[in-house]
Amino acid sequence: MGGRLLRAGFLLALLFGASWYAWTAFTELSYLSSAGRLGPGFFPRVIGASLVALLAYSVFVDLQGDWPESAISPYWRTAAVLALLCAVFVGLLDLVGGVLAMVAFMAGSLWFLNRGRTLQNALVAILLPLAMYLVFSVWLKATLPRGLIPLPF
């Protein structure tokens, strides 16, 4: 049952987004340009209307229970925690800078996934971000977030 509800929730979220897209296409974008050619609203209207129709039909079919449904995996918490840690990681990038955020993320996720191997986790959590820093920032001169208080190196 949980699996079906989750599927319906995902489809409804897509339907909501598609409805907003179609509404914007029909109300804010003109079908024809001032020169009388097909305008910026033409393609989005076709896409939006098709999406809403297909998603509405899918929600209807799904709620009717025509689909073979599998139970939610017992490992869903692992995926959810990693996704949450990833969100925290992205949030930390601009706050504490790329290097510290990488170390914090690796330490947190390895503590969660690879419990009981403290030394291994500590080494990976420090060495991998260091390698990333050397590759991206030093070698490639790519931009890494500096954070509110930049590190001295």
């Binding site: 990693l82 990833c86 601009d94 996720s109 996934l113 971000p129 490639l140 931009t143 977030p145």
Partner: peptide, 30 residues
Amino acid sequence: YRILAPAVILVCTIGTYSVSGSIVETWLMF
């Protein structure tokens, strides 16, 4: 895989940010 998975997330996130230095695009990737 329990070590590989966080490493892949790290590479994905930093890789995305470094393309144009945009935190908006990094959230978009998430």
